[in-house]
């Protein structure tokens, strides 16, 4: 083996380690800024039209809604799957209330007793413009929901623009949702 080849070969490990190191550094940066989430769940429906559904409302909170009504909206809507039995959903509520000042949020109670869901939504003031009950979680399956809370940004006409699988707060709204609204 000549010495140049030897030198190149012995330099390979540090080059490899360097590439890995830069990758890890980018990941850490992304984790701090929110751009990289190792626990993220990707929803295959992003970019596609919303599925068909028709759901009843919750006691004392109106009539529920259908996919046709959601499609007919002229403003973007944030669709939020929640449940009264879910702790992150409880933590999410103040954030949702502050987001609801900027855009309409439509809530879907996932696998929840209607009276529990209704009491949960009304306890500290509802953030939702409209609420529907997905009593047995069928609609959630069509949306590709893996757990609650999950949220979808739906454009006028019914296309899903964005999906989030964590409890929402104003920071996520500013970083992820607001820039997408600007493009509409």
């Amino acid at each position: 083996m000549n010495s140049t080849r030897r030198g190149l070969l012995t330099a390979l490990p540090i080059v490899g380690a360097g590439v890995l190191g830069v990758g890890f550094w980018k990941m850490l940066q992304g984790m701090e800024s929110g751009g990289f989430d190792p626990r993220a769940v990707k929803n295959p429906n992003v970019g596609r039209p919303i599925p068909q559904f028709a759901m009843p409302g919750l006691p004392g909170l109106g009539d529920g809604f259908t996919d046709k009504e959601l499609r007919a909206e002229t403003r973007p809507v944030l669709v939020n799957f929640f449940a009264s039995w879910c702790i992150p959903c409880v933590q999410e509520m103040p954030g949702l209330r502050s987001i609801s000042r900027n855009m309409p949020i439509w809530g879907i109670a996932y696998e929840d007793k209607p009276e529990n869901a209704s009491a949960f939504v009304q306890r500290d003031g509802t953030p939702y413009a409209r609420v529907a009950a997905d009593r047995h979680g069928r609609v959630a399956i069509d949306w590709g929901v893996t757990g609650v809370p999950e949220s979808f940004l739906v454009a006028p006409g019914g296309r899903i623009l964005w999906h989030g699988s964590a409890a929402l707060d104003p920071q996520i709204y500013d970083a992820e949702i607001r820039p997408r609204l600007a493009g509409l």
């Binding site: 030198g7 012995t10 330099a11 490990p13 540090i14 380690a17 360097g18 190191g21």
Partner: peptide
């Protein structure tokens, strides 16, 4: 790691 691999190279 970088230091030791640089020394190695």
């Amino acid at each position: 790691i970088g230091g030791s691999l640089a020394l190695f190279a």
